[in-house]
Design a protein around this nucleic acid. Structure first.
Lengths: 249, 249
DNA sequence: GGCACTTATCGTCATGTTGACAATAATGCT
DNA sequence: AGCATTATTGTCAACATGACGATAAGTGCC
């Protein structure tokens, strides 16, 4: 690692700045069986050995935050190319959130279709999906981070086309609606949802094909409209207008 | 400073984690003369000496992020108790944003009524308000952070009662409208805005008194409704429902 | 005081959006 | 064929929004 060139620049009167270990944590959310799930690992080392925690780890020299988040998630799930949408959630700390000392963590949010995680019987940390509604106590301040992440996910569905990040490339309106219902924890009228989803400009695009084999009438397949798709450079900043507001009691 | 107890906990196989200098930057926004303004300082030291930059500085040991942001802002403006609403914006880096090496910065957003900054002729860094529309080149990646902050402010006005953070405790509908117009950069119909602002449940509360002395008919004074006011513990998470959407061309 | 000017506030109307729910369409199952 | 199941289209009333007319209540000027 570099011993940094700070002191060459800093006037004598300025002490060298404090340095902190920086971690990235990822709240990976998906929808399974109509329920919102979160990816958690079982800690194999102290502190909080045996407790569940968000996947994550230290940022390495020369890494950016998103890079580090992707790397950690890949390492701990054994998944090469992460599906879904990853964005920064917010930073926590550094004071008093780790018994070992001050650690700053930058939490991230992944909205993804259900994907299988490596269930290696190895000594690696075991990652698995857990229904958000039944998550037991978590290590560190991860319960708070999870709360914030779920709240963010809820509001993302209102104002952005990112509900589709939970689905694959092509999906039916009913599948998309199931996402909204799971994340918001409410029931939505299929007819009104259909009207809204298909009627919002810049949101969906009909593929032209239909599903087959299920019970009931086949459904038309949709994908994200081009304007709503993430581009190579930046993640999608596309906005749903008008928004698809969740019912408030 | 503490030399941290990491190594006592980490198994031999794990190297000590990388440590990074962490700064907080603050994008302080206000409305002056109907224009959105941002607080900038003129750098007195390298790198970027003489350039404008966001106020900010290193996080100290034992500090939390918001604390550090408040401290830095107070130091650089000479203002004791900051008015307005402060929240975290997001983190940037650590790679390649500071010529001295990797520095992680956690940007913050302050929405505040216009307040005077210390215009000391001292050798301290000179802080002053600048219209956002005319901000010249900024140091580091601060232009990007400012962009993100303005975008965040715009959307905050849509979905939260935080437009009022730009006003004092009591304000008229016209003053509030001026905030929306300045932040969004649009003109709003006074009659429709009045209807919307006063008609949105949980947003405003009539004080009972009127303004006097201005030109034109006196206006009723309003303040934030109790549900929309920040409480001691947490900052306001209150939401405007229905939202007050900005016009999309 | 009377008048012009200014800003605040209330109303009206056509249009668009939403929630509730009826009706119809297109499958699989028996 | 008839039934169960899911998808999709419609209808209708309540509500929200944009455009804009009309009125209210001050200040400043003569």
């Amino acid at each position: 690692m570099t011993i940094s060139a700070y002191d060459e620049y800093m006037p004598e009167s300025h002490p060298a700045p404090e340095r902190f270990p920086v971690t990235v944590d990822v709240v990976a959310l998906t929808v399974r069986d109509g329920e919102l799930n979160v990816l958690l690992i079982t800690r194999l080392i102290e502190p909080f050995r045996g407790k569940l925690a968000l996947p994550g780890g230290f940022v390495l020299a020369g890494e950016d935050l998103l890079e580090a988040a992707v790397r950690e998630l890949a390492e701990e799930t054994g998944v090469e190319h992460l599906p879904g949408h990853l964005e920064q959630l917010g930073s926590y700390g550094p004071k008093g959130r780790d018994p070992r000392g001050d650690v700053l963590t930058v939490a991230h949010l992944l909205l993804a279709p259900d994907f299988p995680v490596l269930s290696a019987g190895s000594d690696a940390e075991q990652a698995a999906w857990y229904p958000v509604a039944e998550v037991p106590e978590l290590a560190f301040d991860h319960a708070r981070i999870l709360d914030d992440a779920v709240e963010r996910a809820k509001s993302k569905l209102e104002y952005s086309p990112l509900g589709a990040a939970f689905c694959g490339d092509e999906f039916t309106i009913a599948q998309l609606r199931a996402v909204y219902e799971a994340v918001w924890g409410t029931r939505l009228d299929p007819r009104n949802f259909h009207r809204k989803a298909t009627g919002t400009p810049g949101f969906l695009e009909e593929v032209g094909r239909m599903t087959a084999g299920d019970a009931g009438r086949p459904a038309a397949l949709f994908r994200l409209a081009p304007e709503a798709r993430p581009t190579a450079g930046h993640p999608t900043r596309a906005v749903l207008n008008p928004p698809l507001m969740r019912p408030r009691e």
